[in-house]
């Protein structure tokens, strides 16, 4: 962790809130808006913003995700910084057309004369223990299939603040998924001041020799637990947090797999067509002669997210541990 000045204990939602405060302070064109944003947001991420920056820059929108995305693209297109909130990633789909057909192609179709780079869409993402079908999903793979977008998932408060500020300031439209299970659960010492963490750069969370494990968001914590168990079996795991799903950092993973000779990829989203498939395919191409075992994916099952079966559905640390053992056998 680079030195970014004095730190404070923060959880993930206070870190996001801190990033939003800084973004608003440092950029007079920045606005924060979405459903229920004005009173502080259902996850408290926009708390105190309205009081500090006024109702014109921090506001509720009507209940329409496509409207939020379209409105935000329009603001960004004329040079403003639009920080839009989709209350849950499960509800981002009405905005899919706006994000995929409009935001992502905005610069390309204009030959570079117009862009909506000031756009950042934040959304609460992932399993939370009781979310069922529509408060649990991880839709990053849909967006990762769209050239022109950047897709980012932080694993904790420190990353959330630094990566969110980078997304807001990046000159490309970004989709920033916040693991809602970690809003309160994850606590870090987070710099109070302004800092950016690089996009499209994976983070080697723990070094190891026998196997490379790649994940993002909540999965990073499950990988770390699994690595603890594997350690007792004498297996040394290298844990990588991908952080940016698109455009992703193939080189860090490539380098690691060339060292360990084994790869496990894990995500909460269903197995088939998940982003793990892309990583597995690319790493096979690049590291075929270094691989000592087939690449293993430990992911959600290919079913809708099931409420009372969440514990069984999730690719938890035991399933990851089992996967590690299988690959290293």
């Amino acid at each position: 962790m680079a030195d970014h000045g004095p730190t404070e204990k923060m959880n993930l939602f206070t870190a996001v809130n801190g990033a939003l405060h800084i973004a608003m302070e440092t950029d007079p064109t920045a606005c924060v808006f979405g459903e229920d944003v004005a009173f502080g947001g259902v996850f408290r991420c926009s708390i105190d913003l309205r009081e500090k920056f006024g109702p014109h820059r921090v506001f509720n929108t009507p209940l329409s995700e496509q409207g939020i995305a379209g409105f935000a693209i329009g603001m960004a297109a004329v040079g403003h910084t639009a920080i839009a909130e989709m209350q849950f990633a499960d509800y981002i789909f009405p905005a899919f057309d706006q994000l995929v057909n409009e935001a992502a192609k905005f610069r390309y179709r204009a030959g570079g004369v117009w862009d909506c780079g000031g756009l950042t869409v934040r959304s609460a993402w992932g399993a939370v223990g009781h979310g069922g079908h529509y408060h649990s999903q991880c839709p990053e793979a849909y967006f990762a299939h769209t050239p022109g977008l950047k897709v980012v998932v932080p694993r904790g408060p420190y990353q959330a603040k630094g990566l969110l500020l980078s997304c807001i300031r990046d000159r490309n439209p970004c989709v920033f998924f916040e693991p809602k299970a970690l809003y309160r659960a994850a606590v870090d010492q987070v710099p109070v001041g302004d800092y950016n963490l690089p996009l499209s750069k994976a983070d080697v969370v723990q070094e190891g020799d026998d196997i490379t494990c790649v994940g993002w968001g909540t999965q990073v914590h499950r990988m770390l637990k699994a690595a603890e168990m594997a350690k007792e079996e004498g297996i040394s795991c290298e844990i990588i947090d991908l952080q940016t799903i698109l455009p992703w950092d193939v080189h860090t993973i490539e380098e690691s797999v060339k060292k360990t000779g084994r790869l496990l990829v894990t995500h909460e989203a269903p197995l088939t067509q998940g982003f793990g498939a892309e990583i597995a395919a690319s790493i096979t191409e690049r590291c075929f002669f270094s691989l000592e075992a087939p690449i293993k994916r430990v992911c959600g099952y290919d079913v809708p997210f099931p409420l009372i079966y969440e514990k069984f559905y999730l690719p938890d640390e035991y399933k990851i541990f089992e996967g590690i053992k299988e690959v290293c056998a």
């Binding site: 409207g67 995305a69 409105f71 693209i73």
Partner: peptide, 23 residues
Amino acid sequence: QTISTPLTTQVPHAAGSGYAFKL
């Protein structure tokens, strides 16, 4: 602004950019 063939997608952009002009 660039014309794109998906219908109506530009209409919310006009709402957003018009808001930016007001701000």
